[in-house]
Design a protein around this nucleic acid. Structure first.
Lengths: 346, 346
DNA sequence: ATTAGCACTCATTCGTTGCGAGTGCTAACT
DNA sequence: AGTTAGCACTCGCAACGAATGAGTGCTAAT
């Protein structure tokens, strides 16, 4: 059987109606709102579309619902990329830069804006730092026996830990430690640094060596690990309450319990392809996601640091709109990194 | 009418049963499980208790439910503080210090542990820093036109911002800026620092002055504000799904939407009394909280920095247990601050 | 090939009924 | 006097069934 012009139009109409109303759509509705023929004709065509796997029947006597195959066809072939209006773009930019002073902040805002616009659950992942190289290492005394260990990477990411020393250290010792660490670690990526042991380089200085080994090194490792971690921001979790697919409390519960496992989510996101990726229902390997669709996009910075953002929602979603927004957001974020934030304070 | 011995016992029994089952409790149940007389007697007593305002009737033909007044009486007079068993204490300590290397981390863990033990929604607020004094101010070059502005307070709290300069700065200029800022700001509290303008102190150095005014000062203010911010951690949100009071999706929704407004929650928490505070249902000024109870406790550090933690749940909760856990947690946190973390790695 | 007509299906709504847990009252008992 | 047994009554709730109506599939006419 062939996907004739009319069949395509009917399918599109069914998808559009169903995405809007979440109700199975009947032949009369289509017939009334589109010039595609009488209800009976539509019915025949729908019956064909069902046979072809694009529509399903919740039960004999109710309207048709698009199948995942239909959404896939729509996304691949029928969806026109919806250019955002200037107002929408402005709203995004405004929301994005509001109250932002750090990269983390910007990513958090991105998740927020994304959830507000799409009315879905949005997430954003901070850039991975596998390729970041250490630039500075500093030890700053806070009091007698406490110092702050501070690492700066070449991308400007900073991370610090308060370190409790087992005995007081002279400023001199701290300076030696910091200098030696900077000398040996700078230029190395964070994960490289994790594998290098510089304890031997202190050979002449027993005090510095002991202090490094007992106090600094463990904190150093923790701080590196902390820097390597990506953060996951989520927003719009409660948006799902507005969706009829989650009017059953158990559905809602399952959803919340799933997205609450942040490390799982992070894993799943990281492993997704670059660029815009849309997975529909069962296309998600994950059982738990099998009645959700996920749209993600990747933002790049200087061609090296990458992070992801996207939305998760029911398979019934406005794929065109969400895709456009997600794409526009990544462009904006990449741009923001080029010209660091906060300069043109309007 | 008098609250006789037996009335008290019956009231306590009703509370215990209702807290456990969430079902209105009838006279027969009490009569069977406690040696307090026949159903009819219990009924008469219950009727009196209702007249006195300690019990209510959902409808004529169902069992009794404790009123807020009853919970209040229970909390004030009848509740025996439940000493935690050694296993419970161990479990708390274990959960608390797992994977902790920063204060923020510890507080986050506290919320986690608290929600796990109580099966309620828990929150924890990082210590306020109004009394923190600036100790160090540092400017570290990252690249040509980017520096990291780093502030350290006397409590060891560190905050940094990447600052994009409008033109390249010499190391010399940066050193002058940092030195001058440290000189003028150190010893001042964070909020004092926000009010002091040191622009005039650069009078001899036009370059440093311009750089301070255009690039550093705005970031400095943002960083101070960031340091002044307290963070709110929440955990166990999905626990409410297990409670029958939230089996209605709208209740659940309202709850989630309320706790999602983090700044509101933070405000409400901060304004609560020190020590252990229990508010039951309508005692919460807040309309939204009127069918919740909130238990908070304050942890102190060196008698100056304070934060709060607690739980929020239905009025039907195990007040004794929750109170004990909350109290024990605050003690533990205070202790942890005394002897900074990570030293005794078992 | 399209469409009107019609019988049929099935989820949903709404009223009815029966059940059972629990009360309140009265009268008997201690 | 306080306690208890007995009993009529209330009321939420679940189960059942009829009515409703949206929508289909099929057949026959256009």
């Amino acid at each position: 059987m062939d996907l004739t012009e009319r069949k395509l139009k009917i399918l599109q109409a069914v998808i559009a109606d169903f995405v809007r109303t979440a109700e199975p759509v009947g032949s009369r509705t289509i017939s009334k709102n589109y010039e595609l023929g009488s209800p009976a004709t539509i019915r025949n065509e729908m019956s064909d579309l069902e046979e072809m796997g694009y529509l399903t029947h919740p039960h004999t006597s109710s309207g048709r619902v698009p199948s995942e195959k239909a959404y896939r066809l729509y996304v691949n072939e029928m969806m026109s990329k919806r250019e955002l209006s200037q107002e929408e773009k402005d709203a995004i930019a405004k929301g994005l830069y509001e109250n932002v002073n750090e990269l983390e902040n910007l990513i958090e805002r991105a998740a927020h804006v994304l959830s507000e616009i799409t009315n879905l659950t949005a997430f954003a992942l901070t850039p991975g730092t596998e390729q970041d190289k250490l630039k500075y290492i500093n030890l700053l005394p806070v009091d007698e026996q406490t110092v702050v260990l501070m690492l700066v990477s070449d991308s400007g990411k900073v991370s610090n830990t308060a370190v409790r020393l087992d005995k007081p250290a002279s400023e001199e010792t701290l300076r030696i430690l910091a200098k030696n660490m900077t000398y040996n670690y700078s230029g190395k990526t964070l994960s490289e640094a994790l594998t290098i042991d510089i304890i031997k380089t202190f050979k002449e200085d027993a005090e510095a060596m002991a202090m490094f080994e007992h106090s600094i090194a463990p904190s150093f490792i923790r701080t590196l690990e902390d820097m390597l971690n990506v953060n996951l921001y989520m927003d719009g979790l409660t948006n799902i309450f507005a969706l009829p697919e989650y009017s059953d409390i158990n559905k809602a519960r399952t959803f919340f319990e799933m997205v609450n496992r942040k490390s799982d989510i992070t894993q799943k996101l990281i492993s997704r392809d670059d660029g815009i990726m849309i997975t529909i229902g069962g296309e998600n390997q994950d059982e738990e996601l099998s009645d959700c669709s996920v749209i993600t996009a990747t933002y790049h910075v200087d061609g090296k640091m990458v992070g992801k953002l996207g939305v998760i929602g029911p398979t019934r979603m406005k794929y065109d709109e969400v895709t456009s927004v997600v794409e526009y957001l990544t462009e904006n974020i990449s741009k923001a990194f080029m010209l660091p934030e906060g300069e043109d304070d309007d």
